[in-house]
């Protein structure tokens, strides 16, 4: 997994609450067998004016110029600024893959849906929870100065605006550690391989019909 220490980039303001995973990546794209390539279909219904097909070329489709990610400089954004309960709805991990593939490294919002929050860490996307008024402030700053580059610092647990405020965020140590080091969940579990084998040996005695 890609490690996350400090990231600086353009922040795109997505001014809606309860953005669900179906909005992030609609169900027809779940037919893909890849983990990549979802970027062009991220927010598909909002981004395009005509319907899309999985695996089709999206370059000819008519874009909705009102949608923030179609506007410069936000089409190059790497940080997504969102409102509360971001990522609610189905458990599809494709939602995180779509954001990652679009180029996002972090999402800043006042709250996230549980499964989306978990899935993000498994894919090196950092969800940052800030207070509602802090998120408001970021929305304000970005609208005044669209190309503004924001810094997200996982080491210091801070979001910094150049020449502006510094916001602190909280995150459990285990998750932070894994993301800072880019540690792979599976590799970590495999450190307990001996214990897993011991468990299996025990079960083979107690409940051999299971093994």
């Amino acid at each position: 997994m890609q490690a996350f220490t400090v990231h600086e980039g353009i922040a795109a303001p997505l001014d809606r609450a309860n953005v669900d995973t179906d909005a992030i990546i609609p169900k027809q794209y779940l037919k893909s067998v890849k983990r990549t390539g979802f970027g062009p279909n991220a927010f598909d219904d909002w981004r395009y004016l005509d319907p899309g097909e999985p695996d089709a070329d999206n370059s000819w489709r008519r874009k909705n110029s009102d949608f923030v990610l179609n506007q410069s400089p936000f089409d190059r954004a790497t940080i997504l600024l969102a409102r509360k309960n971001f990522g609610c709805g189905s458990s599809r991990e494709h939602a995180v893959w779509a954001l990652d593939d679009f180029g996002f490294r972090a999402v800043i919002a006042p709250s996230f849906a549980d499964i989306f929050f978990n899935n993000s860490f498994k894919n090196g996307l950092l969800p940052v929870v800030l207070k509602e008024e802090e998120v408001d402030e970021l929305f304000r700053r970005v609208s005044q100065e669209p190309g503004l580059r924001i810094q997200v610092d996982l080491q210091a647990k801070e979001v910094r605006v150049p020449g502006g405020p510094v916001f602190h965020f909280e995150l459990d140590e285990y998750r932070r550690h894994r993301l800072l080091e880019g540690l792979d969940d599976i590799a970590l579990t495999l450190q307990h391989a001996q214990e897993i084998r011991a468990y299996e040996a025990r079960r083979r005695e107690e409940a051999p019909w299971l093994m």
Partner: peptide, 18 residues
Amino acid sequence: FGIGTSEVEHVLATQCLW
């Protein structure tokens, strides 16, 4: 119980889940 795709990979590789 149901799991996400990263967890599918995790179970394939380790036979376990957190």
